[in-house]
Design a protein around this nucleic acid. Structure first.
Length: 966
RNA sequence: GCCGCUGUAGCUCAGUGGUAGAGCGCAUCCUUGGUAAGGCUGAGGUCGUGGGUUCAAAUCCCACCAGCGGCUCCA
């Protein structure tokens, strides 16, 4: 027997009169209009109450008894086009998780900010003259408005933007911190540069250039410098600089003339810029670089325990690209008696007896040495022509053909193992940027060397035997095996397995001074200069001799100067745009804020005119969210220790940042932790990638994609291009303005409301999968919300329609099953299956409403809380109607009763010879004998057995019975 | 070429050895003062293909096919 509920405590002020559907709809049906009203109402309430503001330790209202949960979204670049439907996918997921965590009793840090430096605003400025800060701020305001429309539970009091001077002050500060630091290989961590200088002074550290420095030549590295105090100032400065984590190096960079800037390797795809697809050239340029390579091993080791997708960890490992092997020195004879050393890196020192020739990269210094002092066979003209052509080739051209090309340098090296001469070639399949830029070629056991040897008819000597050769042995065996043909004057590794052979060769190399064990990494130092305007200025000035000095922390930030125009400087050589700001560029040490101890205040200096790349501000923003307004420090240590303990608890964003942003952030965090700024070296304890939301488009026969508005459906399922009449194939692909298949979230919310939008995007499929947007499917989640609303609310009066009667046993069981399921699903980030469970619960509830006349209050009070993370606005409204105090956002998360999950009887299928013949209901927990007896008593089973002898009966209690007959 | 992921109803996806499921779509009927709607009922599946293991395979193993993503001369 149900009792009518009391009227709601707070009836809506004005009943909705119209709907998008019809004017005849009941006044309190859940329509887009009603949804919009509820959503506005609750968003205003959350904002007014500062519901989602979370205090730091030590601040009023901080509850130390609650565990912390730091949930971070990758902050967006606020483009002028506004949000697309891909943004809210991840943001909705984290919002659901954060709302659940709040209800489950956590202190939740869930911030949002803006990655706002970047090229698009600057290109707009070039075209229109509008300052990038204006367009960027407009875009930010639009993004914020759109995000707030979704009802996300961000703590907006913590909002930061990388373009705020109060923010980039600390980006610059971090740069100086790394500039004033070196990596102590012995300690395995970064230390202040002053400690290195002191160690040099005290003679505790040998006075020499950093042997790991990429920017220092081998000859400088080999120099014995002697006693530190006897060195001249320039040498000492050069030595110190070679250790700094931020240094100036002249490297071949990816110069994009069209964008007027240098790009990082991960910003270049197939020789073209990731942004815009413009051609990229390789040019030598003096750049600020970060010595991230010093951290290669740390970045590998620290990666292991992280709760990241295994695929992303693999990508990072491969990007760092550790390979273990040996460095081997070969003597090369030039003209006359001249000999030079040629050092190679190899992972297969065990194949040294099979090294029948050598190859150097076109950029290798040996090429110049040979041309200066040619051998008897040297064809200088041919070498020069080849090297010139190879050097001028862009990356695209080099990759176009894998045909092996090369030229004999006409000189010989001595294979140290055999003592025999082998020719030295130059070829572009050897890359200057990897290892030493030179290889010993072992054509019998390396595919590339084999192809080259085949093309130029060079000898192939087998030195490794495949212990288990396949039926069709390949021409070239690159695996591990047993050494053969490997005896020389003073080394014999015959019959040794590859691993042992490697060890023995390395020992021999070390003993005879011809080489040593070496670990090589693919990872390169991080190019940190850009020649653009809209980025952080470097806190660096140069004296007239070109020496660099940091701006002292007290003088930060170095503000961006105003420019009259933002067009790139027309020049064959890369030129930074800030060079246009003459009066800003030419200043004095005192005005720039250089420490007077370093440089007298009156000294004329010029400022660094490059700016930092977009990845500067994003390498540490997760730290600033912990303490966004601090003007005295990058981050308060207490706040950092609290929120960053174990790293961010959940970091959600696209997989496209697997190596760029995620690696850079790890490097900054590790280095800043080494230097005592942070307590945690790894920024992101748990990482999750959401999939891309795709959309439909059409593809021509030649695989090009055509915009949706240029196609029509000629007949059922057949699509043709209007202009040509050519048949096109419907496909799913990423959303793009070009394909005219972009969905605007504002319009969707206008039609259905934010709760429906959130539900739809989550119900599309697993968060990590890429999923096509189907506008016609949105009605599904909308109807679910409508039905749920109707289960609880009288559509004619808007009053609650719940009864105080106890729920039926079945509904009660389902309710507890749903609590357990939804909770487990949220914890597992399986948000789509959680929605299904809520739909099923509501379906059962609808049946109960139909029979009893009202929904049991006990069920509704739980169901609404389960709904709250997904559809927070409707949940708040129903919570209020249920006459509950306070916000549902602060309500406790329901806990299920495990006893209610135990079924009293279970249905068990009975198979005869593996085919299901009947289903029987047995008491839960019935043993095998009972189950078997019940199965054999079932008439349909007896019929299937048909009197045949029973050979065996398999019973899995509670699961199934299988009867095998003879 | 290498690595990874995916392949289940028309569509999008759950289901990790033991009864093939959900939402949307589709069909039938009901309601026609809830109607760009609600409800009832239903159809629809060689679980990519082939082999193997097992009493039993969508699920485990092997091979192959297709699609998607990443890397790509890394010595």
């Amino acid at each position: 027997m149900s009792t009518p509920s009391t009227p709601p405590a707070t009836p809506p002020a004005t009943p909705p009169t119209a709907t998008t559907a019809t004017d005849d709809a009941p006044p309190f049906r859940y329509t887009a209009k009603l949804a919009g009203e509820l959503e506005g109402k609750w968003q205003a309430r959350w904002a007014a109450d500062e519901t989602f503001r979370v205090p730091n330790p030590g601040q009023p209202g901080f509850d130390a008894s609650r565990p912390k949960f730091y949930c971070l979204d990758m902050f967006p670049y606020p483009s002028g086009a506004g949000l697309h439907v891909g943004h809210p996918e991840g943001y909705t997921a984290t919002d659901i998780i954060c709302r659940y965590k709040r209800m489950a009793g956590f202190n939740v840090l869930h911030p949002m900010g803006w990655d706002a430096f970047g090229l698009p605003a600057e290109q707009y400025a070039i075209a229109t003259g509008v300052h990038p800060s204006i367009t960027t701020k407009d875009a930010i305001n639009n993004f914020r408005r759109q995000l707030q429309r979704f009802g996300f539970c961000y703590d907006w009091s913590r909002e930061v933007g990388t373009i705020d001077p109060g923010y980039y002050k600390w980006t610059q500060w971090a740069f100086v911190k790394l500039y004033d630091a070196w990596f102590d290989a012995a300690a395995g961590k970064a230390r202040p540069i002053s400690e290195l200088a002191a160690a040099f002074e005290a003679g505790q550290h040998p006075a020499r250039f950093n042997p790991q420095a990429a920017e220092i030549s081998d000859t400088d590295k080999a120099r014995e410098l002697g006693v530190w105090s006897t060195l001249d100032a320039a040498t000492r400065r050069g030595v110190i600089n070679s250790y700094r984590l931020a240094y100036q190096g002249t490297t071949t960079v990816n110069w994009c003339p069209k964008l007027g800037t240098v790009l990082a390797n991960d910003e270049v795809i197939d020789g073209r810029s990731e942004r815009g697809g413009h051609p990229v050239l390789r040019k030598p340029l003096k750049q600020w670089m970060f010595r991230i390579t010093a951290y290669a091993q740390r970045l590998l080791d620290q990666l292991e325990p992280l709760a990241w997708p295994e695929s992303t960890k693999t990508i990072q490992r491969e990007w760092i690209g550790k390979s273990e092997g040996a460095e081997i020195e070969f003597r090369v004879g030039l003209s006359g008696q001249t000999q030079v050393a040629l050092t190679v890196f190899t992972t297969r020192p065990d194949t040294i007896f099979g090294a029948t020739y050598m190859v150097v990269a076109p950029e290798h210094p040996l090429v110049e040495a040979v041309l200066a002092s040619p051998g008897a066979r040297t064809d200088a003209a041919k070498v020069i022509a080849y090297v010139r052509e190879a050097r001028n080739a862009s990356d695209v051209e080099r990759q176009e053909s894998k045909e092996k090309t090369g030229v004999d340098l006409g000189v010989d090296a001595i294979n140290p193992a055999t003592g025999k001469p082998i020719p030295v070639w130059v070829a572009d399949y050897v890359l200057m940027g990897y290892g030493t830029g030179a290889i010993m070629a072992v054509p019998a056991h390396d595919e590339r060397d084999y192809e080259f040897a085949k093309a130029f008819v060079l000898p192939v000597v087998e030195v490794v035997r495949d212990p288990a050769p396949p039926a069709k042995p390949p021409a070239c065996f690159a695996g591990d095996g047993l050494a053969m043909n490997s005896v020389g004057p003073d080394l014999d590794i015959n019959t040794l397995p590859t691993q042992q052979a490697k060890a023995k060769v390395i020992d021999w190399l070390a003993q005879t001074g011809r080489g040593k064990r070496r670990i090589n990494y693919k990872l390169r130092d991080w190019t940190f200069s850009r020649q653009r305007y809209w980025g952080e200025p470097f806190p660096i000035v140069f004296d007239e001799a070109g020496n660099h000095y940091p701006v002292s922390p007290a003088a930060l930030p170095v503000l961006l100067p105003q420019l009259a125009d933002y067009a790139p400087i027309e020049s064959d050589d890369p030129q930074p745009l800030l060079a246009k700001a003459g009066p800003w560029v030419r200043t004095t040490a005192g005005e720039a804020g250089v420490d007077p101890v370093l440089l007298a205040p009156s000294t004329p200096v010029t400022r660094e005119c490059n700016t930092m790349p977009g990845s500067a501000g994003s390498s540490w923003y997760f730290l600033r969210f912990c303490d966004p307004a601090n003007s005295a420090a990058m981050i308060d240590p207490q706040a950092e220790r609290y929120w960053m303990a174990g790293g961010v608890d959940l970091y959600l964003g696209g997989a496209e940042h697997a190596v760029g942003h995620l690696l850079y952030s790890r490097f900054w965090t590790s280095a800043l932790a080494d230097l005592g700024v942070l307590s945690t070296a790894e920024p992101f304890g748990k990482l999750f990638h959401q999939g891309m939301i795709t959309s439909s488009a059409y593809q021509r026969a030649d695989k090009t994609i055509i915009a949706t508005d240029l196609v029509h459906e000629a007949s059922e399922g057949r699509f043709v291009e209007r202009a040509t009449g050519e048949t096109v194939t419907p496909i799913v692909t990423k959303m793009s303005k070009r394909f005219k298949n972009v969905v605007n979230p504002d319009e969707v919310m206008e039609q259905f409301g934010a709760d429906t939008f959130r539900l739809y995007e989550m119900a599309m499929g697993p968060l990590e999968a890429s999923k096509p947007w189907n506008t016609k499917d949105i009605i599904g989640p909308f109807r679910f919300l409508q039905r749920l609303w109707r289960s609880c609310v009288d559509e004619a009066t808007g009053t609650l329609r719940v009864g105080e009667q106890p729920p039926t046993e079945a509904l009660s069981r389902l309710l507890h099953k749903t609590i357990a399921g939804v909770t487990a699903d949220i914890n597992a980030i399986a948000l789509h299956t959680g929605i299904s469970k809520l739909i099923e619960l509501n379906n059962e509830l609808t049946r109960e409403v139909a029979s009893a006349g009202a929904a049991p209050r006990a069920v509704v009070e739980v169901m609404v809380r389960l709904l709250a993370p997904y559809a927070p606005h409707m949940a708040e409204e129903l919570w209020q109607k249920l006459n509950q105090r306070g916000l549902i956002a602060d309500a406790p998360w329901p806990i299920h009763d495990p006893a209610m999950l135990v079924e009293s009887t279970v249905e068990v299928p009975v198979q005869v010879l593996g085919k299901i013949k009947a289903r029987i209901n047995v008491p839960a927990g019935a043993d095998a004998a009972t189950t078997e007896a019940m199965a054999l008593a079932e008439p349909a089973v007896r019929a299937a057995i048909a009197g045949k002898p029973i050979k065996k009966v398999i019973v899995v209690p509670g699961k199934m019975v299988n009867i095998l007959t003879g």
